[in-house]
C-alpha cells in the first residue's frame, strides 16, 4: 500500500472537497439526529415535542409485532445481501475485462433489469407468479421474500463490484499466472483481496436496499411476514406511532456499536 503512505500534501488533496464532505455528512446525520431526539418524546406524535420520556421504547419493547418485524427485516437483509453479493461478484468477474463476446450485452441488460422497472411492477408480477407457487406447493414461508429481495439486490451489488474490477490492474494476475499459480490460487491470493472494497460497497448497498424495500415486500409477504418498512407503510394513512422512532434509534445504536467493534478489531489487527 505504497500510495497511501505517500505524503498527503499537494498530490491528493483537492480544494474544497473536504468541506463538501463535511457538509455532506452533516446533512446525512441531521435528520437522523432529529429522529433520535423524538424517540424520547413523551407525546403521541412522531415529531411534536412534549417532554422527555422512555414510553416509546417501553411500548416498542412490549410490542411483539414490531420486534418480530425488525428481526425479520435484519434477517432478510443479511441473507439476501449475502447471496446477492456472491452471485453478483461472480457475474461481475464474468462480464468484465474481456473482449466483447456474444451474450455479453444480453447479460448486462439482464443483470440490470430489476433497476429499470418501477417497484410496483415487479411487485405485481411477483404477486401473480408467487401466489401460484404458494397455492400449488402449500409453502408460503419466507423463501419467497428472500428470493425477491436477492433478485432486486443483484444490480446494486453488481455495479460497484464491476466498477472496481474495471479499474483493477491485470498485470498482477498475469504475474501470478507466470509464477505458476493455478487460476484459483491467483484468484484467491490476488484478485479477491483487491476486490474487497468493491465487495464491501456492493454488500452494503444491497443490505441497505433490502432493508428499505417497501412495495415489493408488501405484495410478496404472506401472513405473519411483516417487515419494518411494510409495518410502517400500513400506518401511513393513519397516525404513525412513535414506536417507529424508538425502533430506528435501537437500530442506529446497534449499527454504531457494530462499526465501533469493527473499528477496534481492525486496529488490533494492524
Amino acid at each position: 500500500m505504497a500510495t497511501e503512505r505517500r505524503k498527503p500534501f499537494a498530490i491528493k488533496a483537492q480544494p474544497g472537497f473536504g468541506l463538501v464532505a463535511m457538509l455532506c455528512f452533516f446533512m446525512l446525520y441531521l435528520p437522523i439526529a432529529i429522529l433520535v431526539v423524538y424517540a424520547f418524546n413523551a407525546g403521541e406524535n412522531i415529531a411534536l415535542w412534549e417532554g422527555f420520556s422512555l414510553r416509546w421504547f417501553q411500548s416498542a419493547w412490549a410490542n411483539e409485532t414490531v420486534q418480530e418485524a425488525a428481526m425479520r427485516s435484519l434477517f432478510l437483509a443479511s441473507v439476501s445481501a449475502t447471496i446477492a453479493t456472491i452471485v453478483a461478484g461472480m457475474a461481475a468477474i464474468a462480464t468484465t475485462r474481456t473482449a466483447p463476446y456474444r451474450g455479453l450485452t444480453f447479460k448486462y441488460a439482464m443483470i440490470n433489469q430489476p433497476l429499470m422497472v418501477p417497484e410496483i411492477v415487479t411487485a405485481v408480477s411477483l404477486l401473480i407468479v408467487f401466489s401460484r407457487f404458494k397455492v400449488w406447493t402449500g409453502y408460503s414461508g419466507i423463501g419467497y421474500l428472500v428470493l425477491a429481495h436477492t433478485a432486486f439486490c443483484i444490480p446494486f451489488a453488481y455495479l460497484p463490484i464491476r466498477a472496481r474490477l474495471e479499474n483493477m490492474d491485470l498485470t498482477l494476475e498475469r504475474a501470478a499466472a507466470d509464477l505458476y499459480a493455478t487460476p484459483w490460487q491467483a484468484f484467491k491470493r490476488v484478485t479477491l483481496p483487491l476486490l474487497v472494497p468493491g465487495l464491501v460497497a456492493g454488500y452494503m448497498l444491497a443490505f441497505v436496499i433490502s432493508l428499505d424495500d417497501v412495495v415489493i415486500t408488501e405484495f410478496v409477504k404472506s401472513g405473519g411476514q411483516e417487515t419494518l418498512p411494510t409495518y410502517m407503510l400500513g400506518q401511513l394513512r393513519r397516525a404513525v406511532s412513535p414506536e417507529i422512532n424508538a425502533i430506528a434509534t435501537v437500530f442506529l445504536a446497534l449499527s454504531v456499536l457494530l462499526v465501533t467493534l469493527f473499528y477496534f478489531v481492525n486496529r488490533k489487527k494492524n
Binding site: F25, I34, L35, I46, A47, D212, P229, A248, L254, F262
Partner: peptide
C-alpha cells in the same frame, strides 16, 4: 464508508418524516 450507510439503517419512510 460505514458512516455513509448508517443513516440508511433507518427506513426510508421514517427518514422522510425526519
Amino acid at each position: 464508508v460505514f458512516m455513509v450507510t448508517i443513516p440508511f439503517w433507518t427506513n426510508i419512510l421514517i427518514r422522510t418524516f425526519a
